[in-house]
């Protein structure tokens, strides 16, 4: 391990209130530790920020998957394993279960959390496009109170978010109907290999059609094509109210390409990412059931 551990302190609050109190009282920005699947890697590489770490793993208030009114509410510490196993998620929000199944290895899925994936803020985070496609809201909590932020307004830039230094992610709230089985949906992960891979491009699509066959609902969300996970609102608007036909697939693909800004990095190329983003969308549209 390249980090010098003497530069770190780890504190373990016993309750959520205690954690919020510690956050409120601290002058420095605390590092929040959930499953550790990102932070331990940073420690090993010697790039973790030294200082006080707050270990949230023991806070059961941040666990659980529940139906509350017309929402599914997921505790921030919900693991990928729990997402995969949950009947509720598999039935109502299948893209989230599919995304969870593609993350790392079993050990990573046992420790890695939804809240951690959001807080880490990697544009390649596999659970993030499904959250965008399902209109998720992020429940932020501090000693000052609780507020909900639509997920597509959560990030302000590369690994930067609206969360204040004294706030933590308490829960993720998703409308129950977001993943309605009457809608076509698809999760696409193009990784660096068949398993244990980080995404080169990750996407989630949800598409609903009215009785006359025109598109009346569309969400298209991508990761790894911009500094943050993104919803392609112009693409969505472009297809709303139209029938799916080869012309629409073509024109919407052009809109898609105008709306993403992938880069060359050590995992892939901008060119490849543009190609895959387009073909993922094309193939989804071509294969919408009942077309």
């Amino acid at each position: 391990m390249r980090a010098r551990l003497a530069g770190f302190s780890l504190e373990r609050p016993g309750t959520l209130d205690e954690a919020l109190g510690m956050l409120a009282a601290s002058k420095e920005r605390l590092t929040l530790l959930a499953g550790g699947t990102d932070l331990y890697v940073y420690l090993n590489a010697g790039v973790a920020r030294p200082g006080r770490w707050l270990d949230l793993w023991g806070l059961d208030e941040l666990r659980g998957i529940h139906e509350v009114g017309d929402h599914v509410v997921l505790g921030a510490l919900t693991t990928y394993t729990e997402l995969r196993a949950s009947e509720l998620i598999r039935g109502a929000l299948p893209l989230l279960a599919q995304a969870a199944a593609t993350v790392g290895a079993v050990a990573i899925q046992n420790r890695g959390t939804l809240g951690g994936n959001i807080a880490n803020g990697s544009p390649a985070g596999d659970s993030l496009p499904p959250l965008l496609a399902y209109d998720a809201e992020i429940g932020l909590r501090s000693a000052r109170g609780r507020r909900f932020v639509p997920f597509d307004r959560f990030y302000t830039g590369y690994r930067a978010s609206v969360a204040a230094p004294d706030e933590l992610i308490e829960q993720i709230r998703i409308p129950l109907g977001a993943g309605s089985s009457s809608r076509a949906c698809r999760f696409v992960k193009v990784g660096t290999r068949a398993a244990q891979a980080i995404s080169k491009v990750v996407a989630a699509f949800v598409l609903g059609r009215a009785g006359d066959g025109t598109v009346d609902h569309c969400r298209a969300a991508f990761g790894s094509v911009a500094p943050t996970p993104v919803r392609l609102r112009r693409l969505e608007q472009h297809v709303i109210g139209k029938r799916i036909d080869p012309a629409l697939i073509r024109t919407s693909s052009d809109v898609l390409l105008s709306e993403i800004a992938p880069i060359d990095d050590i995992r892939s190329t901008a060119r490849y990412r543009r190609f895959v983003a387009r073909t993922a969308w094309q193939r989804f549209m071509e294969e919408v059931p009942g077309l």
């Binding site: 290999r193 068949a194 398993a195 995992r267």
Partner: peptide, 11 residues
């Protein structure tokens, strides 16, 4: 080994 990609059994 996150970014230097060797095959796994799935590959």
């Amino acid at each position: 080994f996150t970014n230097y990609i060797i095959p796994t059994f799935a590959d």
